[in-house]
């Protein structure tokens, strides 16, 4: 496991998500990406209304035997697959879920030399909300040591400047990277997309990637592809 950065790709609207994703995939294949299956990250939110607690339960196909339970405070419990059975037991007496709030990010997975690139379409319930690109640099466990390298690849793919990583990762640049960090980055983006209006254009996230990209900028590389 190396360092992973998850970046939201700005799109002009929900209808442009598929074409933007296809263009990105073509660009990855053009730089030598070998398609290596598919990936999925999902998030189900459980509420305990009487106690006022919220719990997000996430799964990542990169770690299929693990379940991640993320609380509002940012605390993340990593558990084995039996955690799902436990949640079934505690639902609906202690926790409840709302219909149509499950978030899923699915798409193809590519291997490009030492990098793994994933292009995922985010759906909330049944509506498509955004596009995320995950970039993993496998040989290095510390973000600060490989950020420039990853940035170069992402900038060439997306055609937009990436000045710094998201707020979560920016605080942990010199720490050893763990799978929990990937989950926290996905949660950051899922929170932004949950708040966004599905009808409106999906633009750059408020959660962090700076660079002042515009929709027009975002379309530049994809239209070339």
């Amino acid at each position: 496991m190396g360092v992973v950065i998850v970046h939201m790709v700005p799109c002009s609207g929900p209808e442009a998500l598929q074409s933007t994703a296809d263009n990105l995939c073509r660009m990855i294949e053009r730089i030598g990406g070998q398609r290596d299956g598919v990936f999925c990250v999902d998030c189900e939110t459980y509420f305990n209304t009487s106690m006022g607690r919220t719990q997000h339960v996430l799964h990542d196909s990169e770690h299929p035997a693990s379940v991640f339970s993320l609380l509002e405070s940012g605390l993340c419990l990593v558990a084995d697959a039996n955690f799902d059975s436990l949640m079934n037991k505690l639902t609906p007496q202690l926790f409840t879920t709302k219909m149509g709030t499950k978030v899923e990010c699915k798409g193809p997975r590519y291997q490009v030399e030492d990098f793994v690139l994933k292009v995922g379409t985010v759906t909330i319930g049944t509506s498509a909300r955004g596009l995320l690109v995950e970039c993993e640099y496998q040989p290095c466990p510390v973000t600060a040591s490989c950020w420039e390298l990853m940035r170069e690849l992402m900038e060439s793919l997306l055609g937009v400047p990436l000045n710094q990583p998201g707020p979560y990762l920016a605080l942990r640049m010199r720490e050893i990277y763990t799978p929990v960090d990937t989950i926290q980055q996905y949660m950051e983006h899922f929170n932004v997309l949950r708040k966004s209006n599905p009808v409106q254009a999906v633009s750059a996230p408020a959660s962090g990637q700076s660079g002042g990209q515009t929709n027009q900028n975002a379309q530049t590389p994809t239209s070339k592809g």
Binding site: A79, F83, S85, K89
Partner: peptide, 18 residues
């Protein structure tokens, strides 16, 4: 019985859940 292996922050997690 449901047995779940977890990370070491289990006690903090339980306390935060109430």
């Amino acid at each position: 019985v449901i047995e779940v292996g977890t990370s070491s922050n289990l006690v903090t997690w339980l306390n935060e859940l109430g």
